[in-house]
């Protein structure tokens, strides 16, 4: 572009000449981007909510009963021995994990308390059927935003401990959770792509109409010796300005959606903070703004090139 100041002046002049068409193009870009971003945000929120369950993940390690002694039945583990096993399990589970030894008596008391009045029935049992367990909690920080595979990996490490008879970590639940997260992310990406394609189509048509309305001007510019690049420059700048305006609008709409609407929706459906994805940083807003510019430029280039091909 040999004359940026000239082309910018012409672009601004044309925007002023056709305020309604320009506003329509900018609003179309803003709506399209905001809808795309909203689709992405919704997918992210649902994904966050699902992943949030992983933060609650608790792994139960059923401990093998002590080996029988040479003199008879096995001696029950002491609490200290149980704590040593818990420490070993916590180390195996990974950094930041904690483990608690739950002896059969403790487990029975807890079950009785959980069963409330019905718990009295447990008194009728001749022996305590509950096993010794280690209750392992993974680092909340790691899982709060979901990394379900860490639950799986920790469980695999715990299964390898010599005293671990069985490890229960809700494998089926986590598998279903992971599948659900994959589906939501896929649907979000597909929706994003669909809305973006519709946006490009809409913006392209709006810009094409604007170009068509000024076909006479384009023809005259060619007739007085303007190259295609010269003709297109002002239109492309105009498209970029419209797109950037639309991108700024989309960034504003996204901020409102994320900061005002989403917390209310999360609260209304009872998910609370679990539903909320990490807050968007300046990069997201910048990306939305620039995406508007890119859409405006792409639509303008396509529209002008298509028209220029028709004239000599």
């Amino acid at each position: 572009m040999a004359r940026p100041a000239y082309h910018l002046r012409q672009a601004v002049h044309c925007l002023r000449q056709t305020p309604l068409a320009s506003a329509a193009a900018a609003v179309t870009v803003a709506l399209a981007l905001a809808m795309s971003a909203a689709a992405r945000l919704a997918a992210s929120a649902v994904s966050s909510a699902l992943q949030g369950y992983a933060a609650e993940a608790r792994i139960t390690v059923f401990v093998s009963p002590p080996a029988p002694g040479p003199d008879g039945p096995p001696r029950p583990r002491t609490v200290d021995e149980g704590r040593l096993l818990a420490d070993e399990a916590a180390r195996a589970a990974g950094p930041g994990a904690s483990a608690e030894y739950v002896d059969p008596e403790h487990a029975l008391r807890r079950l009785r308390a959980e069963l409330d009045g019905a718990g009295e029935a447990l008194a009728a049992l001749a022996t305590n059927p509950l096993p010794e367990t280690l209750e392992v909690r993974l680092a909340g920080g790691e899982l709060a935003r979901g990394n379900l595979h860490q639950v799986r990996e920790a469980a695999a490490r715990l299964e390898k401990l010599p005293f671990a008879e069985e490890v229960d970590w809700g494998r089926a639940f986590v598998d279903r959770l992971e599948e659900a997260v994959r589906l939501v992310r896929g649907a979000g990406a597909a929706l994003f792509a669909l809305v973006l394609a519709a946006a490009l189509f809409l913006v392209g048509n709006v810009v094409r109409l604007a170009v068509y309305a000024r076909r006479e001007e384009i023809e005259i510019l060619r007739l007085v010796g303007a190259t295609d690049t010269f003709v297109a420059a002002a239109f492309v700048l105009e498209g970029a300005l419209q797109g950037l305006a639309g991108g700024a609008g989309a960034a504003g709409a996204y901020a409102l959606l994320e900061r005002l609407a989403l917390p209310r929706i999360a609260s209304a459906v009872g998910f609370g903070a679990q539903l909320l994805p990490p807050p968007a940083g300046a990069g997201t807003y910048l990306a939305l703004w620039l995406a508007g510019g890119v859409i405006g430029v792409a639509a303008s280039v396509a529209a002008v090139a298509r028209f220029l091909r028709r004239i000599r």
Binding site: R222, L223, V224, G225, A226, T227, D228, F230, R312
Partner: peptide, 10 residues
């Protein structure tokens, strides 16, 4: 070509 036509017209 198209740019050549533009130069001619100038």
């Amino acid at each position: 070509n198209r740019d050549g036509i533009a130069r001619l017209r100038r």
